[in-house]
């Protein structure tokens, strides 16, 4: 799926990230270097430190030690807003949507904010040019028929897509997807990933996604980071990582004797 010509400076680098919550170590010496246009997946059991990693990179949490570089620039101390403005966007395990607004309005909000200028008091939010662009985005994710609906009327899959579509409005250079298919009906998983990955590839976005479904991991990522107990225990091509005995023991739970799907 991804183009495999990483060039020059890595899109995203972390150096020795450390984070603990009381006695719990959520990140221990996390060092990665993600090349431009790479598509990597992050696997691991709950509590292994995947979301902590995403939260640190996107400025929701700050590491106790270590640094985060985006295209060579230190972004360790930035908050979510500055990180987003710099070009790193994310989606959420539980889609973060504006529940009192319609699908279209959600995208209009994202577009109004994506504008380099701060949201204006005098510029109409629903002018036709903006609505056209919002519709284009909805169409790209095939959720345009839901445009007038409120969040409570949407299926889990549509919410996931809308959440990611909104993050795409800012034209990120790096995208972190936190469990893009969790809670989605099994038969919807691949169609959703197809749409998302296609949209990301079209804009050459470097992508990291957290995922529990190994079929999706093998199909969409060109490299896998396996997390366990706040550490990265494997970092390689999907097949290599999934055959790693440590990963099978601590992450996928597919120890050789009881190999299953």
């Amino acid at each position: 799926m991804s183009t495999s010509n990483p060039t020059g400076t890595p899109a995203l680098e972390t150096k020795g990230l450390m984070k603990s919550f009381g006695a719990v170590t959520a990140a221990h010496d996390i060092t990665v270097s993600v090349p431009e246009r790479a598509v990597w997946s992050l696997i691991g059991t709950n509590g292994a430190g995947k979301t902590t990693f995403v939260n640190m990179v996107t400025g929701y949490l700050h590491p106790d030690q270590g640094s985060i570089l985006f295209q060579g620039r230190d972004i360790t101390s930035l908050g979510p807003r500055e990180v987003t403005r710099a070009g790193i966007c994310r989606s959420f395990q539980i889609p973060q949507l504006c529940s009192e607004l319609t699908v279209l309005e959600n995208v209009l909000v994202a577009l109004a904010i994506a504008d380099p200028k701060p949201p204006s008091f005098f510029r109409k939010a629903r002018e036709s040019a903006a609505e056209d662009r919002a519709m284009e985005i909805l169409k790209r994710f095939r959720i345009e028929e839901h445009r007038g609906r409120l969040m409570s009327e949407l299926s889990a899959g549509v919410r996931k897509l809308l959440d990611i579509a909104m993050s795409m409005c800012g034209h990120p250079k790096v995208m972190l997807l936190d469990e893009p298919t969790s809670g989605v009906a099994a038969e919807e998983k691949f169609p959703i990933m197809d749409l998302v990955m296609e949209a990301l590839a079209a804009e050459n976005v470097t992508t990291l996604f957290v995922e529990h479904d190994m079929d999706i991991v093998t199909r969409y990522s060109d490299r896998v980071l396996a997390f366990y107990d706040g550490r990265i225990i494997a970092d390689d091509a999907p097949d290599e990582v999934l055959n790693d005995p440590q990963v099978q023991r601590y992450v996928t739970g597919t120890a050789p004797a009881e190999a299953s799907s």
Binding site: T58, G79, P80, R81, T84, R85, C89, R90, Q96, L97, C98, S99, E100, L101, E105, N106, V109, A110, I113, A114, P118, P119, M166, S167, C169, G170
Partner: peptide
């Protein structure tokens, strides 16, 4: 209105 619904999202879209 978006702030009223979901502040976190607004910050993560890049607005203050």
């Amino acid at each position: 209105l978006a702030v009223r619904s979901n502040e976190l999202r607004v910050e993560y879209l890049g607005a203050s």
